[in-house]
Amino acid sequence: MRDRSLVAFTLLTQWGVGLFWALLAVRLWSARTAGWPALESATAGAQAAVPVLAALGIAASLLHLGRPFRFWRAPTNLGRSWLSREVLLAALFLGACAFCAALALWAPGEVFLKGVADGAGALLGAALLRAMSRAYRLRTVPAWDAWTTPAAFLGTALLLGSVGAATALSAGPRPVAVPENAPGYLALAALAVLLAEQMVLLAWTRRLAGGPKASREALRRIVVGRKSWLLARLVAGGLSAVACAAAVLLIRPEEVLRLALVLALTAELFGRLLFYEARVREGL
């Protein structure tokens, strides 16, 4: 239960950050051909999904606490603890993206204010991913204390964000303001992230194999103890890549993108479960 609530927290908040970035990128890219207020209205529904994802993630994280009603104490050691900073940044990101979604829904004409809020949200998302990565890079857990941890978290955000945005923008009648090929480009980005993620996974396992005893034990847990999870991670990731490639080529990719999103979520879920399974500390 404990790890599952943290799996939900990390996946949902990273998905939220990635979706925020992807939707902002689409709007910036489309701004040359369409007015900003029209773009805000066209993506308002998708923007509203970001605070929902972040709120669900934060709510899930409370489930792992022994005393959940004392959660407010978590951001009180900001000077030393990356976990404390992560909690504060998650709350700030939730506030920023909720404000952005509210502006997109009810005040799309507030261009300057929205621009400032978007910029703040994007930076807070990046800071949240960094704090999250640092919180897991414990020097006593060699499987986590590596560059592959931030790479994996960034990969999750970029993959789920781009596929999620592509799926949202291709669902139903396409808004005139959003370019017709935007979902295709997002699917192409997702395909590139999926390929990069396989490289990161390979680098991680090689690192574990060549590391100290705790690393090798982590690798044994993943490859031998949870080989069905590893297989599910690889198969779902591979199929999601195929679906993304198909979405790039198809004129009406809605159904394929939905499938790609489900497969990408499955791959990320098993990947994250494997990440937590690799928590083997040095010593006792």
Partner: peptide
């Protein structure tokens, strides 16, 4: 203490 058990993860 919140009971987050993060120290338990970290202490070798």
């Amino acid at each position: 203490c919140l009971g987050c058990r993060y120290c338990e993860w970290a202490c070798p």
